[in-house]
Amino acid sequence: MATAKNGAAAAERRRQILDAAVRVFARQGFHTCRVSDIADEAGVAYGLVYHYFRSKDAVLDTLFRDRWSLMTALIEDVDRQDLPVRDKLHAITSFIIDSYRHDPELMKVIIVEVTRAANSFGQTHLTEIRKAYDGIATIVEHGQAAGELRTDITSQFAAMAFYGAIEQVLTSWIFDLLPFGEVEAEQAKTLIVETICGGLDAK
C-alpha cells in the first residue's frame, strides 16, 4: 500500500513539474528560461526537477513526445475506420484544434519550440514528426485509391499541405493574428479540410 501511495505521489509531482514547465516555456520561451524557473513555478526545490528530468531539454522532450504520440495513435486509429476520406481528415483536424482549445499553452510550446523550430532540438524529432505526415499520407492514398481524391498530387505533398494548414491556423491564433473562439474553432475544422480536399477552384 505504501509503495502504491509513493508511486502515485511521485507521478503527481512529476506531472506538477511538467505543467509548470508548460507555463514557463509558453511565457518566457524555452531558450530563455532556466530549470530554476520551472522549479519556482512548480513550487518545488531546484534539485527535485533533476530528480525526474536530467535537463531542461528532457522536460520539453517529454512534453512533445506525450502529446505527439497521442496524435499519431489517433491518426492510425482513424485510418482503420471505414469512413470517407474527408471525415478521416476532419477527425484529425478536430483532434488538433480541440487540443489547442483545451491546452493552448502546451500546443504553443509544441509548435513554437519543436515542430517549427529551426534548431537542433527540432531536428532530433524529425522521425516522429514524419511519422504523423506518413500516417496522413496513407489516409490520402486510401482516398485516392477509392476515387475520392485526385491522383495527380502526391500523398506526401498533400499530407504536408494538410498538416501545414492546421499548424498555420494555430500559429495565427497563438500570435493573435486571427480571432479565436468557439465559433472560429469549429469553422476552421471544416474550412481546412475543404480547402485541402476541395481546393479553391470555382465549381
Rank of each mutant, 00 (worst) to 15 (best):
T3W: 00
R67W: 06
A58H: 11
E76H: 09
I129V: 13
V24S: 09
L89Q: 08
S55G: 06
V24M: 04
I92V: 15
I139Q: 08
I139E: 07
R65C: 07
F64L: 10
L74Q: 10
E76M: 09
I96F: 03
I136G: 10
D98P: 15
A2V: 15
H125T: 03
V44I: 15
V59Q: 11
I129E: 08
T195N: 05
D103L: 06
E167F: 07
L63C: 11
V22Q: 11
S36A: 15
R54F: 01
V114L: 05
R14T: 06
E76Q: 10
A2I: 15
A8H: 13
G181M: 03
S120N: 07
K108W: 02
L63A: 08
I192F: 08
S94T: 05
G7H: 05
M160G: 14
P84C: 01
D61L: 04
A8D: 11
A9C: 02
G47N: 08
E141A: 14
V78W: 01
V44C: 09
P179G: 15
R67M: 05
T138S: 15
K203E: 13
L178I: 15
G135D: 06
I153F: 04
A161Q: 12
E182T: 15
F175C: 11
S172G: 14
I174Y: 02
A145E: 07
L74W: 00
K131D: 09
A26W: 03
D19F: 02
R54G: 10
S36L: 05
E148A: 06
D87T: 08
V183I: 07
Q144E: 09
H31L: 14
V140F: 12
D103W: 02
D61S: 13
N6Y: 02
A161F: 02
D176L: 12
S94D: 04
T124D: 14
S36Y: 09
R101Y: 00
K56P: 02
M1G: 13
W173A: 11
Q156A: 12
A9D: 11
G143C: 07
L170W: 00
K56Y: 01
M71N: 10
I129D: 02
W173Y: 03
T32G: 13
R116G: 07
F64W: 10
L60M: 07
R27C: 01
P104W: 00
F95T: 12
A159C: 06
K131Y: 00
V49F: 04
A118Y: 06
V193W: 00
I136H: 04
E167D: 03
T151C: 12
G164D: 11
A188C: 12
A26Y: 05
S36I: 09
I166F: 01
E194T: 09
F157L: 15
T32V: 12
F162M: 05
N6M: 13
S172L: 14
L83N: 09
N119I: 12
A161R: 11
H125R: 11
V109S: 11
V85P: 15
I38Y: 07
L60C: 14
R130C: 05
A10I: 05
G143W: 00
R15F: 03
V85D: 14
C197K: 12
L83R: 11
H90Y: 06
K189H: 08
G122P: 06
T154F: 03
W68V: 14
D87I: 02
I17R: 12
